Amino acid sequence: MAKLALLVATLALAFFVVNASIYRNHPDRSWCERQIRREDNLRQCQKYIEEESSDSPYNRPGRYLDSCCQQLENLERECRCDGLKHAVRQQLEEGEWEREEAGELYQVAQMILRKCNVEEPRRCDMPSRRWF
Score class of each variant (00 low, 15 high):
R77S: 15
E100Q: 15
R80A: 04
C116Y: 04
Q46G: 10
R89L: 11
A9M: 14
A109Y: 04
N117D: 15
K85N: 12
F132G: 05
A5K: 13
A20R: 11
L72F: 10
C124G: 02
R60W: 07
F15V: 12
F16R: 08
C69D: 08
V88Y: 05
D28Q: 07
R34F: 06
R60A: 09
R80L: 03
A2W: 04
N74M: 10
E73R: 15
V118E: 01
C124H: 03
K115P: 00
R129L: 09
E76M: 09
P121L: 06
C124D: 02
L7K: 07
W97Q: 10
S21G: 15
P121H: 08
P127E: 09
S54I: 01
A102G: 09
L84N: 03
M126S: 04
N25T: 01
Q35T: 01
R63A: 13
C32V: 05
C45L: 02
E50A: 06
P61L: 13
F132V: 06
L113E: 01
D40P: 00
Q91F: 00
C81R: 04
R43A: 03
R129C: 00
E120C: 00
S21K: 06
L13A: 15
L84R: 03
E101T: 07
N41P: 01
E39N: 14
R129G: 08
Y64M: 08
R63N: 11
P127H: 07
E50T: 05
R122D: 05
E51S: 12
S56Y: 08
E120L: 10
A109W: 02
L11I: 14
P61K: 14
D125G: 02
A87E: 06
S56W: 10
A87K: 03
Y23H: 10
L13Y: 12
N41D: 14
R60H: 12
L75E: 08
K85T: 12
A14D: 00
R34A: 11
D28Y: 00
A109N: 05
C69A: 12
E78C: 02
Q107V: 01
W131L: 04
A2T: 07
E96I: 08
S30G: 00
M1W: 10
E51G: 01
E94L: 13
V108W: 04
E73S: 15
L4T: 07
I36P: 05
N117K: 12
L42T: 04
L72N: 09
C45H: 07
Q44A: 07
Q46V: 01
S54T: 09
R60Q: 14
E119P: 00
L42H: 09
F15K: 03
Q70K: 15
L113Q: 02
N59P: 00
Q71W: 08
P61I: 12
Y58W: 12
L113S: 03
A9L: 15
G62W: 11
Q71H: 11
